[in-house]
Design a protein around this nucleic acid. Structure first.
Lengths: 385, 385
DNA sequence: CGGGCACGGAGAAACGTATCTTCATCAATG
DNA sequence: CATTGATGAAGATACGTTTCTCCGTGCCCG
């Protein structure tokens, strides 16, 4: 067996002092071949349980840890998936600025971990060397802009890409998005029922899908109902601009009596603006905004919010991505490659599969004219409990 | 040159159809050796600029992307650093629950990226296979518990470990922490000056350094000043328990007239409890809590908070870690290894270097008796503007 | 009695890069 | 003229796995 050890693992330098034990060392110590060690540790091959456990024992004793790099090189899989967030401006990344991202990323991380993958956050604007220095099995892209070159290159490289937000013009493996149109229409109906006559919109100037779909839905609704659109747009990544836009919206001569704000901080901004103009909420102004933050449960009055359910999205996106990575094809798996389980079908036909997920409207006092008072613990009608 | 190409890169299977171009392909296409390509692309070796640019051009044309896995295997460096967060209970990880973590992680990610590293979040409780499947150049550990086996193993493996929070008994390369003792003493003095006679503490039951140091500082202060300690402890990861503890604290017969809460949600919980007992803040009860959230600027009244400056911490921790990874030794670099720049000195003498960073107390109405009213835009004395 | 089969295991070829060593060439210098 | 030194580039090896292929040995069964 000494011969075998010498043959397979010839060491030029006499003895490296404190090096980590490799698979060769385990093989030598257990008196078996490298193959046997690998098989024993990975539960493959045909080995009697006795050999398996003996090898495992030796490996444990030597403190053997397989080299992730070598395994990745050999198998072509790193167990790493990227979470790409498009960045605005110079700031490294806005990211946790909005609770949506934070929640979504958290859920994505959890989902990845529970399937044995780790998640690494990579702003699209990172130095290129960072991108190419990391072996990624796949990537989640949040709200890719039209014609995103990064996504295109990834896709071309054969790396599965799943996007959160329906992609404009990028080819992706799959995508997940909320049903923004339905959400906006639902809110507008809700406000109408609460007595709104002229509903305004606080929206963004960027061209991402969320902003576009939501604004279009609003405009379409206005057209259908015969209301003149009343909206202000501002660059969504600039918090200061949001407050200004909120103020502008309420300062208009055709001031709306209800407003839906597309972004997280709009609620407080609108509330502050309303106070400045002496408008009472909800009596003079109905308010809804899209937010994941629960501070709106504690404002005065509490504000109705639309939740995009970021956790559900994050989980779904990651699971879809890992399915693609591991070749869990839902379509025809006819002529997949032979070397590895099919990484990704390049020659897919038709548009990539997309999933629309419902949103949730959390109705609070700010959008209910009927709610008589905002005192502590009002007597609830028994039908609600 | 065809001979060279054949010799170095013999392809058994006739032609792999859509495989990514490797360094061999570039070498063949440029009519040079693999060595030359590697040197040209990495800016090493002695090559005339003409060759360099020609090789680069060919590589670009072929869409060559070096294999991160192979490079990692060869160089022993992955460009990946871990961010480990100790988890409580069954939840995958609390993490963004507290704004401190979110901010700190964000800063850490940015700092890593700007130095060419990517950061991957790995809960300590992750399945073991995830941990060993990823090649990490180093790890940041947030608040490691005493005798953390994970940290010990990492350290033994020669992976640099830098901890956020002074480590109890784990060996680490370096650590960074706030000066919690000074912070607590500062707050207690601040409250005393505002007229507090009996200061209570809302603290946690866990044994992490933050909780321990802060509580000890409080107890020491009480002893020195001659005040009987008044505190309630609860499991910090359980938000519901926090509200209960806040209530208990204010329900005591020896009810404090000022409270410092160690955790983020304590502010709102204490405020709610105060309302329940008809206590006015700050008139009947002075309030301070440790939080990074700016919702406390908007509560009624606004609440004084202690900020641990998580961004500064995250940035510092990561930079320290990368310094250690890249062998930027501040100590004696006498007999470092020859293969690579010194990864990490195992035989360090004395305790690992620690850095204490100052905190910031953001004083708001809740801890100032002098503030006469909380109406909108009070007439400011000209001295302040 | 011979061929096949299940069993247990070993050999060796990749995976794609970085880098150490070597080599040829040519000019300059003693 | 022979030696040296710089220049430009190729050869070969190692990084540590996984896995495909193959080999011997018993044993059963036709």
């Amino acid at each position: 067996m000494t011969a075998a050890a010498n043959q397979s693992g010839r060491r030029p330098t006499a003895s490296r002092r404190l090096e980590r034990a490799g698979i060769r060392d385990v093989a030598a110590a257990a008196g078996v071949s490298i193959t046997t060690v690998s098989d024993a540790l990975n539960g493959k091959g045909r080995l009697p349980d006795e050999t398996r456990s003996r090898v495992r024992e030796v490996a444990e004793r030597l403190g053997y840890r397989p080299s992730a790099a070598a395994r990745t090189l050999r198998t072509g899989r790193s167990g790493l998936i990227g979470l790409t967030v498009t960045t605005y401006g110079e700031e490294p990344f806005t990211f946790t600025e909005f609770a949506y991202f934070a929640e979504m990323a958290r859920a994505a991380t959890s989902a990845a971990l529970s399937r044995g993958y780790a998640l690494v956050v990579l702003p699209a604007s990172s130095r290129h060397d960072v991108w190419s220095n990391i072996a990624l099995d796949g990537t989640v892209v949040i709200d890719p802009p039209d014609q995103d070159p990064l996504v295109s290159e990834l896709y071309r490289s054969g790396v599965p890409v799943v996007s959160d937000g329906k992609p404009g013009n990028c080819p992706v493996t799959a995508w997940v998005d909320n049903d923004h149109e339905a959400a906006v229409l639902g809110i507008l109906d809700h406000l109408s029922e609460a007595g709104a006559r002229r509903i305004g919109l606080l929206t963004g100037t960027s061209t991402d899908t969320y902003t576009r779909l939501s604004t279009d839905a609003y405009l379409g609704w206005c057209h259908r109902v015969g209301q003149e659109p009343v909206y202000e747009a501002y660059p969504a990544h600039d918090p200061a601009a949001g407050a200004v836009a909120a103020d502008r919206l309420l300062a208009r001569p055709d001031r709306p009596d209800a407003v839906y704000g597309l972004f997280d901080p709009n609620g407080t901004d609108l509330l502050a603006a309303a106070r400045r103009y002496g408008l009472r909420v909800p009596d003079d102004l109905l308010l809804v905004c899209c937010s994941e933050s629960d501070v709106y449960a504690g404002t005065e009055p509490p504000i109705t919010t639309l939740s995009l359910k970021p956790r559900r999205i994050g989980t779904t996106v990651v699971n879809l991505l890992i399915d693609a990575i591991e070749g869990v094809d839902s379509g025809t798996g006819a002529d997949t490659g032979r070397l590895f389980p099919p990484r990704f079908r390049t020659a897919g036909t038709g548009p990539p599969p997309g999933t629309l997920m419902p949103t949730e409207l959390i109705v609070r006092a700010s959008s209910e004219r009927r709610s008589p008072r905002t005192t502590v613990s009002p007597p609830r009608p028994p039908g609600e409990g």
